Amino acid sequence: MNEKKKSITMKDVAAEAGVSVGTVSRVINNEKGIKEVTLKKVQQAIEKLSYVPDEYARGLKTNRSNIIALLIPTIWHPFFSEFAYHVEKELLKNQYKLLICNADKDSKNEIEYIKLLEKNKVDGIIGITYSDIDKYVSSNLPFVSIDRHFSENVYYVTSENFHGGQLACRELVKRDCQNLAYISGVNKHLNETTERGRGFKAEAKQKNTNLYCLEMPEPLNQAEEQIRTFFEKHPQIDGIFTVNDFMALRVIKVLGEMGKTPVEDYQIIGFDGLRPAFDQPYLLSTIVQQIAQMAQAAVELLLKLIREEKIDQNVISLPVHFFEGNTTKKL
């Protein structure tokens, strides 16, 4: 008859490492000021004994769940999926787990997750939201926003969106485009993505090029029909910048149905830097965001808020760069 396997405790880890139970607890809870040699001993003991901390007990003691919620508008968008991947990767390094809230573009879902934070069910939230939740977001809560300001002084991470729009215009003009177009959806809640269009328009004005804009109110209804009508009205357009890569793919589809092909009949640049898989090239010519670095910055910022550490800046803005894909001419 097999004996029941003995449950490994913190005391067992302490005995194996030759340290106190308190030291083991400090290591498990990621406290600072632990000597490197002590940290290594405890980690080796944990691995050798296959010790699994009691997360529930830890939560009661520390008043933390070691869970971070990530609010995203939809899991179907490649940018949000890739961002979630990198956020989880960073959280695991810090012994945190990720709870994904696929809001499905419904503000009620987002509000429920913010209420979980208020009830100490999650320790903090990283939010990509374009919904009307401003009054629920407080600077007293550990909340890091991506690409959006709120009325309260909430910390946020973004990219150099305005500069990205300028870059897109410069690259199209360098490739002899004379009739430019900017195409986007427009959310009624102000967010940093609008800076992409502002940068593109400002640069087009400076370069004295013809500019045509299609900015469709969200949620997008009959977007393909609007895009088709726009190009029927302005057939001279030869250089296009879209608010994101998804919109660029949509435009390419519509223009394909109209008998036009990228590079041969027009050039197009998106924004985001989406890839079909981790080890695959970008889908088109695009302004690339540093998605992994955005995730890392958001996690670092949120953990500082949770630990009540000093934060030097409320806004982290990361650089972007142009990638020459197959939808613009090669220089």
Rank of each mutant, 00 (worst) to 15 (best):
96 Y>N: 04
208 N>Y: 05
97 K>W: 07
173 V>T: 00
35 K>T: 07
128 I>Y: 15
225 E>M: 07
234 H>N: 15
6 K>D: 14
314 N>A: 02
145 S>P: 08
1 M>Q: 06
85 Y>K: 14
309 E>K: 12
87 V>W: 09
252 I>C: 08
294 M>W: 00
64 R>I: 07
95 Q>F: 13
283 L>G: 03
192 E>Y: 00
311 I>Q: 00
13 V>G: 13
128 I>V: 15
97 K>H: 12
275 R>W: 01
308 E>G: 00
131 S>H: 09
120 N>E: 11
72 I>L: 13
56 Y>K: 10
201 K>C: 09
52 V>L: 13
302 L>G: 06
304 K>R: 11
52 V>S: 14
94 N>T: 06
308 E>D: 12
152 E>H: 09
176 D>K: 13
126 I>H: 08
50 S>V: 12
147 D>T: 01
313 Q>V: 00
237 I>N: 08
160 E>N: 01
266 Y>Q: 01
39 L>G: 10
35 K>V: 05
284 L>F: 04
58 R>A: 14
88 E>T: 07
292 A>R: 13
112 E>C: 07
310 K>E: 07
86 H>V: 04
184 S>P: 03
14 A>T: 14
69 A>C: 13
133 I>T: 14
176 D>A: 03
320 V>Y: 02
295 A>C: 01
195 E>D: 04
194 T>E: 08
287 I>L: 05
88 E>M: 03
217 P>I: 12
222 Q>T: 02
300 E>V: 01
127 G>I: 15
13 V>R: 14
142 P>A: 09
103 A>R: 05
82 E>L: 06
279 D>Q: 05
303 L>C: 07
185 G>D: 05
17 A>G: 12
268 I>P: 00
201 K>L: 11
317 S>T: 12
202 A>D: 14
106 D>A: 02
130 Y>K: 09
278 F>P: 01
100 I>A: 09
241 F>H: 03
254 V>K: 00
121 K>D: 01
258 M>A: 07
236 Q>H: 05
127 G>W: 04
101 C>G: 11
314 N>T: 08
324 E>D: 05
225 E>K: 15
318 L>P: 09
247 M>L: 03
100 I>M: 10
325 G>Y: 06
61 K>T: 11
177 C>R: 02
104 D>K: 14
8 I>G: 09
46 I>T: 15
143 F>Q: 12
319 P>C: 02
266 Y>E: 02
123 D>K: 01
235 P>I: 02
323 F>V: 05
169 C>W: 00
297 A>F: 09
238 D>V: 10
279 D>F: 13
107 S>R: 11
280 Q>N: 04
298 A>I: 11
8 I>W: 14
6 K>I: 15
167 L>H: 00
172 L>A: 01
38 T>N: 12
181 A>C: 04
168 A>C: 06
43 Q>I: 06
94 N>D: 08
229 T>K: 15
184 S>L: 04
256 G>H: 02
37 V>N: 15
65 S>L: 08
56 Y>S: 13
250 R>P: 05
281 P>D: 09
